[in-house]
């Protein structure tokens, strides 16, 4: 059990890094805070300043790595953690 929890934690961390990488590369995404300061528990709107259009841009970029990702997922994403958990389920 311990090793599967550890593996899950590593996987979530990798997904978070992937999300950060997408945010960094996508020119339509300009977070209010520096990339290094972004934490998984941050809210897209309140902390990063992402509106629904920015989230749609994020989804489009993430779909390169997660083709099964549905655009409507953003309706349930308040925090980056929501996004990471959603992607983890897709993996």
């Amino acid at each position: 059990m311990g090793s599967s929890c550890h593996a899950k934690g590593v996987s979530m961390n990798m997904i978070f890094e992937k999300v950060l990488s997408v945010i960094e590369k996508c020119e339509d995404l300009n977070p209010k805070v520096n990339l290094k300061e972004i934490r998984q528990e941050m809210e897209f709107k309140a902390d990063l300043g992402f509106d629904s259009l920015a989230l749609m841009s994020l989804v489009y970029e993430l779909q390169e790595a997660y083709p099964a990702l549905d655009e409507m997922a953003i309706a349930d994403w308040s925090t980056i953690d929501d996004c990471v958990k959603h992607l983890e389920r897709l993996e």
């Binding site: 259009l53 749609m56 655009e71 409507m72 309706a75």
Partner: peptide, 26 residues
């Protein structure tokens, strides 16, 4: 829809005689 869908997302649906209202940002 609970979220705005871009054209790329709408392309996955079978659309017929659809009306789309947009804000300038959209």
């Amino acid at each position: 829809n609970r979220a705005f869908l871009g054209i790329r997302a709408l392309q996955k649906r079978e659309l017929c005689d659809c009306i789309l209202h947009l804000s300038p940002a959209q």
